[in-house]
């Protein structure tokens, strides 16, 4: 009673209000990785979401795929692949990209998906292609189901790839030249079965490892340097 009163007065509601268990567990065990860790030793979580649209405000997550990358490797057995229950009919723009799916009744509930995802990522550094969009989608999912924002550091493969070509001003390069397809071609990654989220997580992981190696050759070794 006092607690709620104080929190109302101080406006620090978030600090004291209890989150859903999945987020509590995640937040309590989260450890910020040291920026000195090398890119080889660091544990990364490369992930991708498939959504019903391209606007994070309205779109819903249809599926999530993720793999844990460490030592320039990842295990298929410890990958995450979930399909969410949704009633949303995807917008035409998303259909034209993903070529999917009207509505998915067979998937798991949203809150369960949020739990699985947060449990999976732990303290790993998140990696995605245009990761900002996926982060926004997952933050929304978390908030909607009693969780809080994602605390993990995040890297964008599109930006990292551009850093390869222009270390000083990567944003000046046209992102359209750095699509996942183009990266696959550049690194000779076999780009089959793209555009389900899981397939994208798999090739994003491969692209990321290829980029990581090349960045090392340019003297970018530590997590701190990668995050710059």
């Amino acid at each position: 009673m006092w607690k709620t009163l104080i929190s109302k007065i101080t406006g620090k509601q978030r600090e004291t209000q209890s989150y859903a268990t999945f987020y509590e567990n995640y937040r309590n065990s989260y450890v910020t990785p040291s920026l000195k860790t090398s890119g080889v030793d660091q544990r990364f979580v490369v992930f991708d979401t498939e959504t019903s649209g391209l606007d994070p405000k309205n779109a819903q997550i249809l599926s999530i795929g993720a793999v844990k990358v460490q030592n320039m490797s990842f295990e298929i057995a410890s990958s995450l692949s979930i399909r969410l229950k949704s009633n949303v009919i995807p917008t035409t723009e998303a259909v034209s990209i993903h070529g999917l799916v009207s509505s998915e009744q067979t998937g798991i509930e949203m809150n369960e998906a949020a739990g699985l995802f947060f449990d999976f990522i732990g303290s790993g550094v998140l990696v995605g292609h245009h990761v900002g969009f996926d982060l926004a989608m997952l933050n929304n999912l978390s908030l909607k189901h009693g969780g809080g924002p994602i605390l993990n550091m995040a890297l964008d493969t599109s930006m990292l790839a551009r850093r390869l070509d222009n270390p000083h001003d990567p944003s000046s390069l046209n992102p359209k030249e750095y699509t996942l397809d183009k990266l696959c071609k550049r690194f000779s990654i076999i780009p089959k079965a793209r555009h389900t989220a899981d397939g994208d997580a798999y090739i994003t992981a491969l692209a990321f490892i290829h980029i990581l190696h090349r960045l090392q050759a340019k003297g970018i070794h530590s997590l701190g340097q990668l995050m710059k």
Binding site: I76, I82, D198, G199, A201
Partner: peptide
């Protein structure tokens, strides 16, 4: 549940 990532490897092998 069906793990789609496995299919990436499966399709290749």
């Amino acid at each position: 549940m069906k793990n789609e990532i496995v299919y990436r490897v499966y399709d290749f092998l």
